[in-house]
Design a protein around this nucleic acid. Structure first.
Length: 536
RNA sequence: GCAGACGUAGCUCAGUUGGUUAGAGCGUCGGAUUGUGGCUCCGAAGGUCGUUGGUUCAACUCCAACCGUCUGUACCA
């Protein structure tokens, strides 16, 4: 017999993309709400741009004829213009501001959450579609705008339930890195990039690894060789000293010189003997830079940020000046910052994974100017919502209060008059604000209706057959309690006939009874959660 | 992009020095039980062994290419 479906279509998800479950969506929504609340409180307003932009507006990735989709997903419009799916939310914002520059009142403070797309190799925790949540101040030239961004990031982390000490916002300045390279005699742009990449690998390969990458290169465990930046040993030393200064020369503040913010961060993390002072660190950086012949402007800006956040009560446990922060290679022109989690993140297999940053940003003074020709300084940051969510799952800080499944109104008789009665009961429950649904499958198999309710996690089932209707009652079955009782009954006939956890009530009392039973179940859940919490 | 490992049922995995008809557990569906979930028992469906080509009397097994997954690495706005 021939196969009747010879060319059955295979259902498959494109690699690097995921379907999202109800639980994921609800958790994401909860996170977005918390982030939004912080941004709103800081006086930012929502603005949204579309997923597609003309490719030339997005930045450096102009489709070339060989690989038009390298890095970004691109398509050609009817008129042959190249369009691309956005790969971040910053470039589209710059386009929006430039296009509406005459209507927009600067400084323009806005936020947006949205999906972005990158056409690159997916890996664990790395997808080709993921969500970012950005906030930007456009037309804000001073470092006070950058300092504000850092503080807002810190507040956002805490609003999401990440305790102080479990995250840190690290701040650097692109001008610092440029200055170091300049003083080190690194002028070739390829070489500059190689140096920045090497510095960025600190958390992955350690200081020795970075030193190798700054020099000849480094061989990884599989024997693959990565070519280095080719600096000589004097240059390497200069770069390492300037960049890793707070690792090399840890300079703890004494109580006499500490600010209130620094004092409040004392002993946090708990076993720390003292604390690094952002202000003293910046002082040391300036002195060092001066001696090393490195331009001072970047350091002066960092120093201002240190003073600003300190005065606002943000200690180095929350916002830390760190000259090793690199942050992307493209459009940043001044302060750069990134949010890092300080607790271990484990994957499904229970292994600790390198997590990296969960958000970052910086000053991009040139981005709007590309369109307008006039200086429009801007600064902003982005939170990687998808990444952060997988980390929060770990910390058990995800919105835990599960949405309770609907009450199921079962169907005993399928004639229109009966169906109308069931439908009316369902609507009465809904009108009372109770999630409810009428069984929509094959009603003739009553066992399947309860099986459905069980697997769906329904808390209650409403049952009214001919007998109940004749006496004007309904049965309400507590499926949670019934499940518990099932453990005590081995024989199926007894199990069926005993109708466990089932009450008979007058039809008029459905809403009140359902409401009461749901409340009781909620109390039970709360008690169990409490017990579980206490046991930990 | 580069290197390596892997690819057998919806899932987790057996298996074959190349030889009739490829197995198990779990899951799914049906029945025992036409008005009651779970347990138990009985039964069924589900595979061109990743794809294509090659070697061979014979390929799930050997070879090649491709596709996909995973690991490392490169790139990462």
């Amino acid at each position: 017999m021939a196969k009747n479906t010879p060319s059955k279509l295979k259902a498959r998800l494109p690699r690097g993309f995921v379907d999202r479950s109800a639980a994921d969506i609800r958790a994401t929504e909860a996170m977005l709400a918390k982030i939004r609340e912080v941004y709103e409180r800081y006086g930012f307003d929502p603005v949204e741009t579309p997923a597609f932009e003309y490719t030339d507006c997005l930045g450096k990735f102009l489709p070339d004829t060989d690989r038009p989709n390298a890095g970004v997903f691109s398509v050609q419009d009817d008129d042959e213009q190249w369009m691309s799916l956005r790969y971040d939310l910053t470039a589209p914002l710059a386009r929006h501001v430039a296009e509406n520059i005459n209507e927009i009142q600067l400084p323009f403070r806005s936020y947006r959450a949205g999906w972005v797309f990158r056409n690159e190799k997916p890996g664990p925790g790395r997808f080709r579609q993921f969500m970012q949540f950005d906030a930007d101040s456009v037309g804000a030239p001073g470092v006070q705008a950058d300092a504000e961004m850092c503080m807002m990031m810190a507040d956002t982390m805490e609003a999401l339930g990440i305790p102080r000490g479990s995250y840190v916002i690290r701040v650097n300045n692109r001008k610092v890195l440029d200055g170091i390279l300049e003083a080190g005699g690194v002028t070739d742009s390829e070489q500059k990039l190689a140096v920045l990449r090497a510095i960025d690998k600190l958390d992955k390969f350690g200081e020795e690894g970075v030193a190798l990458l700054l020099g000849e290169g480094r061989k990884d465990e599989s024997g693959d060789f990565t070519k280095g930046a080719g600096l000589d040993s004097a240059q390497i030393q200069k770069v390492l000293t300037a960049v890793f200064i707070n690792k090399i020369a840890i300079d703890y503040a004494s109580d006499e010189t500490a600010s209130e913010a620094e004092k409040s961060s004392f002993n946090n993390p708990p076993d720390a003997k003292g604390y690094l002072s952002n202000r003293l660190l910046c002082h040391a950086l300036l002195v060092n830079a001066d001696e090393g012949g490195i331009p001072l402007e970047g350091y002066q800006e960092l120093s201002q940020i240190a003073d600003l956040v300190d005065a606002a009560g943000y200690g180095p446990d929350r916002i830390k000046i760190d000259p090793s922060v690199v942050r992307g290679l493209e459009y940043y022109t001044g302060p750069v910052y990134e949010a890092e989690l300080l607790f271990d993140v484990t994957n499904e297999k229970g292994e600790v994974v390198q997590f990296g940053s969960v958000g970052g940003g910086g000053r991009y003074d040139g981005l709007v100017k590309r369109f307008t020709g006039r200086d429009v300084p801007a600064t902003g940051f982005s939170i990687g919502v998808s990444r952060l969510m997988s980390a929060l799952k770990n910390l058990k800080k995800l919105q835990a209060d599960e949405v309770v499944a609907p009450v199921l109104v079962t169907v005993m008789d399928g004639d229109t008059e009966s169906l109308a009665r069931y439908q009316k009961m369902t609507q009465e429950l809904r009108a009372a604000g109770i999630r409810a649904e009428m069984y929509q499958g094959n009603w003739k198999k009553f066992g399947n209706q309860l099986k459905y309710a069980d697997r769906r996690g329904c808390p209650l089932a409403i049952i009214q057959g001919g007998d109940e209707r004749a006496e004007g009652t309904v049965q309400i079955k507590d499926l949670i309690e019934g499940k518990r009782l099932s453990g005590e009954i081995a024989d199926n006939v007894t199990w069926r006939e005993s109708r466990p956890a089932q009450v008979s009530i007058p039809e008029a009392d459905i809403v009140a009874t359902v409401r009461r039973m749901l409340a009781e179940q909620a109390e039970d859940r709360a008690r169990q959660d409490g017990d579980a919490g206490a046991a930990q």
